[in-house]
Amino acid sequence: MISTGLFPYMLGLSAFLFTVGATGVLIRRNPLVVFMCIELMLNAGNVALIAYGRFLNSVEGQIFAFMVIIVAAAEVVVGLALITQIFRLGRELDVDDISEMSE
């Protein structure tokens, strides 16, 4: 069994992964990489949920992590469909150039 003392480090890893993912969303231009960074942030949330669930001796954290995984899968399907469609229109893959919806 892993020791209780690792719990704050689990939360630290979760915070680190979330910050790295958010950084990637902010500084990268390729929408594919931006999506991967969103996946990273969702996984960071899952790590926190499961660590809490483990150390509080509850399965509810695992159930919420399961829901998060389902939502992430649905999001990837729709997002990648959008990206292929943008590419099919002959556009460069750059999130700064895709701004029709904000105008």
């Binding site: 890893l13 680190f16 992964l17 790295v20 993912g21 950084t23 990268r28 991967m36």
Partner: peptide, 9 residues
């Protein structure tokens, strides 16, 4: 996990 997450970005 931490190192490879840096690789993603």
């Amino acid at each position: 996990a931490a190192i490879s997450s840096l690789g993603v970005v």
